[in-house]
Structures are given as structure tokens and as C-alpha cells.
Amino acid sequence: MAALLSPLSPSGPAAAATPAEKGGGSRGRARNRPFLLIVPALLVLLAVFAYPVAQTFVSAFTTPSPGTGNFAWFFGSPANVAVLTRTFSTALWATVICLCLAYPYAYLMTVASPRARATLLLIVMLPFWTSLMVRTFAWLVLLQDTGLVNGFLGLLGLGPVSLVRTQTGVLIGMVQILMPFMVLPLYSVMSGIDRRLLTAAQSLGARPLVALLRVFVPLSLPGVAAGATMVFITSLGFYVTPALLGSPSEALISQFMYTQVSGMLMWGRGGAMAVVLFAATLLLIGLLGLAMRAGRRGKAGAR
């Protein structure tokens, strides 16, 4: 996510190291004084972030009664497990579509002129900063049965297609919102690839497309992995888009959590689903880390 923000605030060259340690009162415990400045932020985070999240996880095992009853309930019903698999498959689809759209886009950014690149970057950042509600509402208008998209399809002689209240609608909305999470890691890796390698491959007789596939694509894989993980994880927790564009009968886990907690006040069940969702997230981050390390080791070994 920090990578996501980097175009907004690229960290410049680190200011040259301080000639000595800082300032007048660098005596003794003053060295840890900067820590005091972090304390208010940490307190707010502990009270309104860490504690509530921990509390939710704990409630999975304690509410209404201690034990693993909430998990038994969740995994015991095929309908609930279907929600989970649907959530994962939606996330997977969103990731794949995002990758297909973002890869050429990010590649274009690496070869475009600086000015065009800045424009492309701005455009991809736009969904990140324009209101989620506004964007989802716009899709709702466009995708409805009498909407612009169906009108266009009608002109082509294709009958009205149900887009709103379907997985297709959810995917269209999600993918647009998730694009920056895929484009930015891709771009940051691609822009670091030495393009002379492509020329070198061509001078060795490879056709441009072959050179691209054999040389560039493998080198861009770390960006693919990072972007795909970001998109997958983020889409697992999506709420507004599926709730408005999707069908209630095909709910995703976050909608299910909302109903359980807000509607039925089943805190423990909500907590259990939070644990499952969070565990899946951490597992993915862990797997990605392992894959990256293995990849790096493989590369080092090849040398």
C-alpha cells in the first residue's frame, strides 16, 4: 500500500546524514525523545484500531460461549462455505482481469514520454481518490437493464443482459477500483528493468515479441506477484461494491458479515468470519513472501 502512495509522495534522496547526532540536548535519554512524538498516534491506533480488531478476533472464540462453536457453525453449513468459495473465486477473477488490463497499461507507462506517463499515472490514481460511493453509483446507472451499456448492446442486436445484481456487475465495478493496486507495483518493477536487455536479445536474433516474452515478462514477475496479492487481498474485503452491484442471493463474505453483525447482532459469527478472512490474507502475504524469496534465490543461483 505504501507503494500505492509513492507516486503522490516519492521519497526523495534521503537528506544527507546528520553531521553528528542532533541538536542541543542530545544528552542521555534525549535520544529516545522522538519516540514521544509517536505516542499520540500509537495511542489512537491502539484504542481505535488494534483493540477493536483484536476484540473482534477474540469474540470469535468467546461469544456467545467459549469454544470453537462459531467456526463449527461457519464451516458446518454448505451455504456458508459457498459464500467463502464465491468470495475467493470473485477475488481470483478480479485479479486475473486486473492483470490482463493492467499489464499493457503499465508497460505503456514505461515506454511513454514523461508527460504521457504522468497523465497515465494520474488517470490510474483517479479511482483511488474519487469517492467509492460515487463510482459505484455511476456503475449502477450504467449497468442497469435500461442503462447505457444495455442500450449499446441493444444497438448491436444483443438482447438486454442482466448486469446489475450479478457477479459480472460486481467484477466490472471491483476491477475498476482495484486497478491502481495492480498498475503501480507492475509499473515500479517494469520501470526498473534494463530495456537494453531487450535490444540485446533482438541482436541475438530473437524477434521483438519473442524477446519481450522471454526476457521482459520473466523479469516483471515480481511486480505481477506483488500486484496480484494486493488486488486479491483487497477484493476479499470489499463491501460496498458487491452490496450495491451484486445479488443478495450471491453474497460475498463481507456482506454476510454485515448481515450477521449489524442485522442479527451475532458478534461471534462475525468475528469468526473476520478471523477466516484475516487468516487468508496473512497466509497469502506469507506465501508471496516465500515465493519472492525463492525467486530471488533461484536468480542468485543462476548467476
Binding site: P19, A20, E21, K22, G23, G24, S26, R27
Partner: peptide
Amino acid sequence: TTTLNMIAGFTD
């Protein structure tokens, strides 16, 4: 520099 910084009070 270190000696100078001690005179200036930048370094304890």
C-alpha cells in the same frame, strides 16, 4: 569536525 561540534554543542 567532532571536536568542533563538541565546542558548538551539537555533539555531547
